[in-house]
Design a protein around this nucleic acid. Structure first.
Lengths: 135, 135
DNA sequence: CTCCGTGCAAACGATTTGCACTATG
DNA sequence: CATAGTGCAAATCGTTTGCACGGAG
């Protein structure tokens, strides 16, 4: 099964990288549609899946919501806003965590791990304060 | 808004605790239906939400499609099997992680964080080996 | 007797799939 | 020219909601 670099695949990849954000499929679809108006949402889904399997982008399965896709494939963690569901990158020093050993204790073979910090992003904090005043 | 301890709520809570597992709503629904056959799936969803808001159970919004609910409300992390989607408890020493400070660096107000180890559980490792032999 | 909770069915949002057609390598 | 990829619509999966009725406090 070889990958063909189709026009739609190329644009999807390029627009995600260009956005420098952690977009969900439908958000990226809106961007890509501006360039290629007849593209289908299914194609965006299919390609995001394929590109992440190929290691060209990252897949973020956070919080049982929409999957988001990461333009940055280097090793890093994420911080998640519970209000607007935005995701930002984070650099955590992962000292003192031996995931292999922890997994071994419960009989698991470890393939990776994920640290996710949860909070409220700067924008939503501002909006929250406005709301308070109104009420 | 006070909580009423209805029959269905009591059974849902009891069966989750009894299972000692991280069940998804439909799995718990199957269990509870054996005891109260006319219960509706919507009731299970509503109660799981309410019980987790009340702090009587934990809600897990980790990888995978479904939310899972935790019989154990004490502070701990989780390990997730990518093959069967099962979740187990884990005790990680969270040394060397100052989530407050990390959040502050990107302007977030932190409400919590989540560490999730990802791998393949003992059962699926066994099954995997069987599959290999067959092929 | 007051509302919170329930069952049911329908609605919903995100994602996937079957199909016939298109176009890459 | 074989076969991976596409667009479209319908299907699916997990979850939520509106509504009229039922039962806990």
């Amino acid at each position: 099964m070889q990958l063909r670099m189709t026009n739609q695949r190329e644009i999807i990849l390029r627009e995600l990288k260009k956005s420098k954000a952690h977009l969900a499929a439908d958000e990226l679809y809106d961007l890509v549609k501006k360039i290629m108006p007849r593209i289908s949402l299914a194609t965006v889904y299919r390609n995001l899946e394929i590109l992440s399997e190929a290691g060209l982008i990252g897949k973020l399965e956070i919080s049982g919501r929409q999957k988001r896709f990461d333009f940055d494939v280097s090793d890093h963690d994420h911080i998640y806003c519970t209000v607007c569901h935005r995701v930002d990158n984070l650099n955590i020093e992962r000292k003192g965590m031996d995931s292999e050993q922890l997994g071994a204790e419960v009989g698991y073979t470890i393939t990776g791990y994920r640290v996710e910090i949860i909070g409220i992003c700067p924008d939503c904090q501002k909006k929250g304060k406005k709301m308070e005043k109104k009420q």
